[in-house]
Design a binder for these strands. Structure first.
Lengths: 204, 204
DNA sequence: CCAAAAGTAAACTATACAGTGTAGTTTACA
DNA sequence: TGTAAACTACACTGTATAGTTTACTTTTGG
């Protein structure tokens, strides 16, 4: 795949891949441009020919990483499948994303910058990574079918997703807990249970 | 209060206060020891006489800030007060902590270091800042009085507190939302409602 | 009141890093 | 095949910063 590229594009990719690696493992600030050049097996001057500043490199790297986890599938409500089954599936997919290497790399690289740069936080927030973007719509459909009863769709969606982030993603990001699929399954199940206890439609 | 101290202790305090200010506003890495000395109105050599390295200064500053928000009050279950009232109070107190300047300063200063230093994350996690430490015990008492029905006390406590952190603290930390007490009241109410929908004891 | 402890300013060392300049080599392609 | 674009090594500038050294002054406590 890389062999049929022009040399220039090949070098550019090498640089980005090296930077992805270094930025996500050591942080942006702790990574020097000399280091990027060395790992990319490219001269430092070439790095600067492609990316005039470190900030532009960061920006390109971030976009590259976001493309990795991009997902345009909209959640589709299925009247024929039980609502708890569907929620379990959504939760499982979200946890798969949250615990993926690609996602954790982005988080490690970005969180530091976020505290310095409120604009970046806003931007990333609006990207609606994961299912949070389309979950309110899914929930609305479930409400229409009389399976759920929700006043504040945005809030309900956040409550659902934030449970998973808090219980699974953050402990993993900060190295407080180690990956454990059995534990994840339990937490997913409990999250769905919590959610349905609150929002399952009362049977009339 | 500061006037009746020995000069040496006074200087030490000035240094820590300057560092608290600078570290929490600009971050540890972006703050130079020269800057600390200048803001503390102290010679750089004096800074180094008190704190041999920047890391030791950071450690002292962190302890100073943690002391600021230390709270040894244990949550006490009150059989005479309705459980939803008690949970609302606990949530309100937690939100007051999470949105306080002191807490946000610690968070801003620490989060960057956390990603580099897993030990620090473990340590801070074990400090059980806020009500998370004593909440499981409170919930157990409420269960004994037949008001709640909880299998996994630790998880339930986390679910409660993490709601507040996710919905209120993180958006504030990253500047995605601005403080808004009315909004907080709504989210607290919704958090308690979610919690009770799941864990309120079924009336036999 | 005087020695020890603690403070001061300012110059200094050593290092790291973003970004540039240069001179020469390789690759793309018309 | 020749030229423009891209690559390379490497030296260089400028700046920032952790921590030290020095020579001197102020505070403290017996």
């Amino acid at each position: 795949m890389m062999s049929d590229m022009k040399l220039s594009d090949k070098k550019r990719l090498q640089i980005i891949e090296a930077a992805v690696d270094l930025f996500s493992n050591s942080g942006v600030d702790a990574t020097s441009m000399d280091m990027v050049a060395k790992v990319a097996q490219v001269s430092k001057r070439t790095v600067y020919n492609h990316f005039a500043t470190k900030e532009l490199l960061f920006s390109a790297v971030l976009n590259h990483m976001l493309a990795d986890i991009e997902c345009n599938e909209r959640l589709k409500f299925e009247p024929t499948i039980a609502i708890d089954e569907q929620l379990l599936q959504i939760a499982q997919a979200e946890v798969n994303l949250l615990t993926s290497d690609a996602f954790l790399r982005i988080a490690r690289m970005t969180f530091i910058q976020l505290l310095h740069d409120a604009k970046l936080a806003q931007t990333l927030n609006q990207q609606h990574i994961g299912c949070l973007g389309t979950l309110p719509n899914f929930l609305a459909q479930a409400c229409e079918h009389g399976l759920l009863s929700i006043e504040d769709l945005e809030l309900a969606a956040k409550q659902f997703v934030y449970q998973l982030k808090s219980l699974i993603f953050y402990p993993l990001l900060y190295g407080i807990e180690t990956p454990n699929q059995q534990r994840y399954d339990y937490l997913i199940e409990q999250t769905v249970e919590l959610f349905l206890a609150r929002y399952a439609a009362k049977i009339a």
